[in-house]
Design a protein around this nucleic acid. Structure first.
Ligand code: SF4
Ligand code: SF4
Lengths: 135, 135
DNA sequence: ATAAAAAAGGATATAAACTGTCTTTTTAGG
DNA sequence: CCTAAAAAGACAGTTTATATCCTTTTTTAT
């Protein structure tokens, strides 16, 4: 239960790698994919999603590639995960559009709300800066 | 991401309902299913899993049915969820048999460990006793 | 202009997981 | 023996996950 998908895992690996590269240079998708051991075509889809919400900037054509959209300390793990996995929703009664008519009287509901808050909090507390391996 | 399945949701509803019934009487599966609005055949599978690990006691034949295996205050939500969904594993590097060769040097790994602990903690802190609607 | 590089977008394919149903078997009571 | 009820196993439809392939668009270099 509650398992991150490959897509989410790949997304993190990819953007963390990018955050560890010189921030003023573009990075080839194929290089990132090779470095973090992810199928390039799959990673392409992921970075397209990143690009749409500005997490990364993309440049097409010769000399193109990807750059981080913001400084690493301004990007949280929560953003990265939600970019590709959607919102953190441990049960559908805590989704934005809740889907359970029992939620008013249900004693379990607040537990899921709590779980949601804690997970979001844990992921939001971590930025890409802290995730790049410093040595 | 991290969504409880129907099975998990049904499991909770079912056993919470059972915990709210007279504890010394057996309860028909069909009655539970009707009360919590779950497909009876599906709930049957769930209660079979409960029965195997002693969360509920089952009685076959005429006059049979289900009873709670332990007092409601001795059954945590975590047990119920893990009984049907398996262990809480937000990423496969925090599973019992970890499945990532990077986990030694990975900075993301401890985050998932933390998430796992917090979710488990939140679910373990709640027992069936607190979940039955008292009125 | 043209050719090449690189990302964007779309269609497709396979496998796995989820959500159930159906049938048969076992157990217990009357 | 007959009936009630759970256990067990097989099966099927749907959805999600995990990719891959191909074409298009954009940009740069020659
Ligand atoms: S936990 Fe309660 S409110 Fe949430 S889906 Fe289940 S029944 Fe509905
Ligand atoms: S978070 Fe790190 S250790 Fe965990 S699966 Fe991803 S790379 Fe491996």
């Amino acid at each position: 239960m509650m398992e991150l998908t490959r897509k989410g895992e790949y997304a993190i690996r990819g953007i963390v790698y990018l955050a560890g590269r010189p921030l003023d240079k573009v990075c080839l998708l194929s290089d990132i994919a090779a470095a973090v051991d992810v199928p390039p075509t799959f990673l392409a889809k992921i970075f397209q999603q990143f690009s749409k919400i500005g997490l990364v900037k993309s440049f097409r054509g010769t000399g193109g590639g990807f750059m981080l959209g913001r400084p690493p300390e301004k990007i949280t793990l929560l953003e990265v995960v939600e970019a590709v996995e959607g919102p953190i929703v441990p049960n559908r009664c805590v989704a934005k559009i809740p889907d359970c008519e029992r939620s008013n009287s249900c004693n379990v509901h607040p537990v899921w709300k709590r779980v949601q808050d804690e997970v979001r909090g844990a992921l939001e507390a971590v930025t890409l800066k802290e995730l790049v391996s410093e040595e």
